[in-house]
Amino acid sequence: MIINHPILGPRDAQEFVYLGDAALIARPDGLAPGAQEAFHDYLYLRDNPAGLHRELWYHEQGDRSWLVVTRNTLTHEITQVELARDVARSLGRSK
């Protein structure tokens, strides 16, 4: 698989480490009511879809950036690559 890095261009997926569902960006608030349940779901439960999947890849052998890759789990086709930083900021994190 080739991941089209937004800054570095097309890179082999071997340069990356895979973490999992991009929903992991949205870490629950540990002080909110129901945090224990929210963290159980956050840590252990996954949508695991067959089809388009937004997921976190870390460019360990490259510029050490985190990417959000949109990939089809049925075909391995990659349709979109974003910097995780941009995705996180659009969700209102790390302002």
């Binding site: 999992g20 779901d41 996954r46 949508d47 695991n48 879809p49 067959a50």
Partner: peptide, 18 residues
């Protein structure tokens, strides 16, 4: 292999990735 897809019929999310 397809557990998440079948259990999604009842809205269950599983501690599983395929």
């Amino acid at each position: 292999g397809n557990s998440s897809r079948v259990m999604a019929h009842v809205g269950m999310r599983l501690p599983i990735e395929s």
